[in-house]
């Protein structure tokens, strides 16, 4: 077999460099790439409010977002809502927003909100809600599911299951501080 050895060697070196480059690239790029990509889809979405009017989620871009997926039939979700509601009222002035997306029927959410006061905006869509939460890492469809997104649109933390006040405070403290000093 006669093959030009030096050109083959060159090809091998180039390939080796590509491999190394690719893996190094992945090591450094994976985390950020993952999180901005998935919130990009979030901000592109429109979703109905409980009155059935479609709203764009773009309005929340550039804010610190506590995104909470819930349902009326989910007891732990309802348990944490007053705490989230309180949290929102206390921090509303700090470029922070709590957003509730109900994976539920419009009717159920409407009647629930009549009885229970929630200070933060709520949206409803059973199918879209499932897709959105899946896109944000909720592969098992856990409820409640809370995603904390920085004002740069980067996912800071995802919390499956019931969230507690002290947990929220701990995660959001570093995010809220810089805006205070400004």
């Amino acid at each position: 077999m006669k093959i030009n050895k030096s050109s083959l060697n060159l090809a091998i070196y180039i390939l080796a460099i590509i491999f190394l480059g690719f893996s190094v690239f992945r090591i450094f790029s994976t985390p950020t790439e993952k999180s901005t990509a998935s919130t990009a889809a979030l901000f592109e979405s429109t979703i109905n409010n409980p009155e059935g009017k479609p709203q764009s989620l773009k309005q929340f871009q550039n804010k610190i977002i506590v995104l909470n997926f819930w349902a009326t039939w989910c007891e732990p979700c309802r348990e944490e809502m007053p705490e989230l509601s309180n949290f929102y009222t206390n921090n509303q002035s700090k470029n922070l927003v709590v957003v509730g997306i109900a994976i539920d029927e419009e009717k159920a959410v409407k009647s629930y909100l009549k009885k229970t006061k929630v200070s933060y905006p709520i949206f409803v869509d059973e199918d879209k809600g499932v897709t959105l939460s899946k896109n944000l890492g909720n592969h098992d469809g856990i409820l409640p599911y809370t995603v904390i997104i920085s004002s740069q649109g980067i996912i800071q933390k995802t919390i499956p299951g019931r969230i507690h006040q002290d947990q929220l405070d701990a995660i959001l403290k570093p995010l809220l501080q810089p805006s205070k000093s400004l």
Binding site: C74, I103, R162
Partner: peptide, 14 residues
């Protein structure tokens, strides 16, 4: 079907 855990979480409709 839909269900929950007593440990404080539920699952989206399956």
């Amino acid at each position: 079907y839909q269900g929950c855990s007593q440990k404080g979480l539920c699952y989206s409709p399956i």
